[in-house]
Simulated scan of single mutants.
Amino acid sequence: MQTKPFRIGTRGSPLALAQAAETRARLMIAHDLPEDMFEIVVLSTKGDRITDRALSEIGGKGLFTQELEDQLVSGELDFAVHSSKDMPTKLPDGLFLSAFLPREDVRDAVVGRTAPTLAELPIAATVGSSSLRRQALIRRLRPDVNVITFRGLVDTRLRKLADGEVDATLLAFAGLKRLGKSEVPTQLLDPTEFPPAPAQGAICIESRIGDSRVNDLLEAINHRPTFDAVTCERAFLGALDGSCRTPIAGYATVEGTSIRFSGMILTPDGSRWHEVSVEGQTAGASALGASAGETIRAKAGSDFFDSWS
């Protein structure tokens, strides 16, 4: 019988705290446990502390996870809650993604100041984004606009936008919804035209391999369709590069035991891109994503990836 609280690791941003609170609430309901059986432990990560440079310049994926993972490995935390798209494809030895909450809306949201949509922005408008995928996709649709790196918490970016630093910015609609800001977007982008980042909109839980006490607890809130979809998308990332230095999009949908995946890779300037679409069974989700990655890599040819280095 568990007598001391489970320790849940999280970053301290408003979105991260909302995600940890949602995880706790689902566990309380699933196991009929009181709130005081779950302690939310807030840690600062390198990605939180360095906000004046692009992620690609300071190490890419893993910047928002290392401090949490260190305490998972040491046993100071029982599990950690993350935005799935922040997770490197290779995790530290002994850790794995044990559960996923039901996925939110995967679409990217435009928040426009001088025009409501990307298409209506004036020529040479400035658009801010911290994501190389979003930057490349914006340039693909609007090669005339000026795209700049734009980091910070959601409220920080919205304040910079209101202050006139950019004409528009892009954010994940899932995060805005979780923060109670679903009215903020001026445009929601069609995923077929502006595909999301692999694992976008999904909250994942990371824990220790073999820790049956914790993993049995988490299994009760694992949403299997999200688990399978994100497993496929992360395998696609793993077959390519999957760091914050590469413009990669990918989205899988699950219906019953069937899974459908579409992926895209772009050059950073958005001038060249390749797409792939595959279907299969959820039991082979990881192999399907990896195969799609190898297919698109072969289609693009080795010279395509020179721009990623």
Rank of each mutant, 00 (worst) to 15 (best):
G9M: 01
T10D: 04
S13V: 00
A18M: 05
T23R: 04
R26L: 15
A30I: 04
H31T: 07
D32M: 05
L33D: 02
P34V: 05
E35S: 15
E35I: 06
M37P: 02
M37W: 12
E39A: 14
V41W: 10
L43Y: 15
S44N: 15
S44A: 15
T45H: 12
K46S: 10
I50F: 05
T51H: 04
D52H: 09
S56N: 11
K61F: 02
L63E: 08
F64Q: 12
Q66N: 07
D70S: 12
E76Y: 07
D78M: 01
K85G: 00
K85E: 11
D86I: 01
G94E: 13
L95V: 08
F96M: 08
A99E: 04
F100A: 05
R103M: 12
D108Q: 10
G112K: 07
P116Y: 09
L118C: 05
L121G: 09
L132E: 12
A136E: 01
A136W: 03
L137E: 15
R140T: 08
P143Y: 06
D144S: 06
R151S: 15
L153H: 14
V154Q: 08
L158A: 09
A162C: 03
D163V: 00
V166M: 00
V166E: 01
A168P: 09
F173K: 02
A174V: 01
L176N: 06
L176Y: 08
L176G: 05
E183R: 11
P185G: 03
T186I: 11
L188H: 08
D190I: 06
D190C: 04
T192D: 15
P196R: 00
Q200E: 13
E206C: 14
I209C: 08
D216Y: 07
D216L: 09
L217Y: 13
L218F: 10
I221H: 02
N222G: 06
T226K: 03
F227A: 07
C232Q: 09
C232N: 11
A239V: 04
D241Q: 09
D241M: 02
C244Y: 14
C244Q: 10
P247K: 08
I248M: 10
Y251L: 14
Y251P: 00
V254G: 02
R260D: 13
I265Y: 04
I265P: 03
S271G: 02
E275R: 14
G280Q: 03
G280R: 11
A285D: 11
L288Q: 06
G289H: 09
S291Y: 06
R297K: 13
A300K: 08
F304Y: 10
S309W: 10
